[in-house]
Design a protein around this nucleic acid. Structure first.
Lengths: 132, 132
DNA sequence: GTAAGCCTTGACGCGGACGTCAAGGCAAGA
DNA sequence: TCTTGCCTTGACGTCCGCGTCAAGGCTTAC
């Protein structure tokens, strides 16, 4: 399998694959013509990376998962190092969600306060017969 | 008041103030020597910007608030345009918090699943006598 | 042979809010 | 006068995950 096919099968681009290779995350063998060559195993690694990226993991944070798979384990998170990343990410998410929730509350309070003072601002939101 | 003093009083840097000016957000008068000159009103504008920035507002999103103050209103959110930004930001925050919460749940599920399979992974979290 | 469609490397662009020099002007105290 | 410390503009660097050319080589079909 060449780079274009792998990219298509993983729903990404060739540019992305070359970038991963430049980071040492997904190295490729080369054919006689210099073309990159991949196999089904690489597709599995790539899908692991993409899944974590979609979760908002930094590229570096996916490395333990990739190495875990490459070491022969059935899943990318079958290794302690991957679990460490999971736990750290959970903590980060908790902190972030907490902060955002706090900000949301403050902004909501400001909006409520300001709406009461601006003419035409407070859009009438009836408590009766509403759909929200 | 010159740029250094204003920056210090607002807890920011001169670089930041020059950046705001380059964006047309906080223009400055100039003295005979070419130095930027600010007054108490500018400090108020700057504090409004900083507060919103701390909330995660983009710089452009602070513009209506600044213009509102500059128009003579008592608060930056005393104008309809500011309220529009508030509401949009609230919607963004809700979406973001929702997404992050979803991701958090998925990561937590993965962690739980993986911990059950990795030797040394599942740190014993007793249900009895805990403090969590 | 030639056009199309893959592939290669190299390198600059992007977005956002600044940080960090660099080279020089101005002001005030000793 | 000299030093110190403020100020000026200009311009490149940072972070991250790529996007987007550019210039050229390989392969395949016709």
């Amino acid at each position: 399998m060449r780079i274009g096919e792998l990219a298509a099968r993983a729903g990404t681009t060739t540019r992305t694959l070359r970038y991963y290779e430049s980071r040492g995350l997904l190295p490729a063998r080369r054919g006689d013509n210099g073309y990159r060559t991949y196999d089904e195993e690489d597709l599995k690694l790539l899908r692991q990376i993409r899944t974590l990226q979609d979760f908002g993991f930094d590229l570096e944070e996916t490395r333990p998962f990739v190495e875990c798979l490459r070491a022969g384990h059935p899943e990318g998170d079958s290794c302690p190092a991957s679990l460490v990343v999971y736990r750290r990410k959970l903590a980060e998410l908790d902190t972030l969600i907490e902060q955002l929730t706090s900000v949301r509350a403050q902004v909501a309070a400001q909006l409520t306060r300001a709406e009461a003072a601006v003419p035409g601002g407070p859009e009438p939101k009836c408590e009766l017969g509403g759909h929200g």
